[in-house]
Design a binder for these strands. Sequence first.
DNA 1: GTATCATATGAATAGATGTTCAAATGATTG
DNA 2: CAATCATTTGAACATCTATTCATATGATAC
Lengths: 120, 120
Amino acid sequence: MAILEQEERNEYLCVHEDTVRKVLKEMPPEEDLYDLAELFKVFGDSTRIKILYALFAAELCVGDIAQLLGMSQTAVSHQLRVLRTNKLVKGRKEGKIVFYSLSDDHVRTIIDQGMEHVDE
Amino acid sequence: MAILEQEERNEYLCVHEDTVRKVLKEMPPEEDLYDLAELFKVFGDSTRIKILYALFAAELCVGDIAQLLGMSQTAVSHQLRVLRTNKLVKGRKEGKIVFYSLSDDHVRTIIDQGMEHVDE
DNA sequence: GTATCATATGAATAGATGTTCAAATGATTG
DNA sequence: CAATCATTTGAACATCTATTCATATGATAC
């Protein structure tokens, strides 16, 4: 009885074992996949995308971005922190003002590639 | 007094108006930026990234993927729905089994580009 | 028809995430 | 030094999201 109940609860999966084994060999390490997802997560917010697009055009301070997006300065600052932590933007301090710009061209390439897909 | 209080509450933003105007002109339409963020959001989950990577290697049914990732069949099915809705994967029905594969090569390009950034 | 298997769906729940508010830092000016 | 400005930080709150559980659909086999 107990065994039958256990079997009832069991999930019978349709599995093609050979294929699964083959695919498993070709999978990158867990950590890389996790990091990749984390990277895309950063791009997966419209506020951050807007900030990055704005920085395509010019170096901007926090206030500029807030004005541009019609958002509070704090909200922008929080998002800039996310972008900074993930090395997508960098800040240059000039007196009290911090001017932000893109870290490298990789950022632009990734976004452009995504935009191509969206444009279809 | 009332006016002063209002001013106290006011957020004084540091804004370079000329720059902001220039950048504003070069910004893509709101909707495109929103769609782009939505696209990246789909890539921004490690389960979905793993599924996509698995589909790089072979056409797989739901059970295969569940086994491969060590996840429940339902969890995988829910994520496949997200990927299907966003046209990143497509399903081919053969009897009771649904075989999933990538919709197009764009998916691979975007992920590869992201992985390059992570690998640094 | 019923039974079984593969997948899908809906509701519920727990955890993550973005914005706001209040307060703190850091730099300039008088 | 105090006052002001630009930015940052932390906590609170509301919303979103991924997984689980239970159930439903859809297809094959008996």
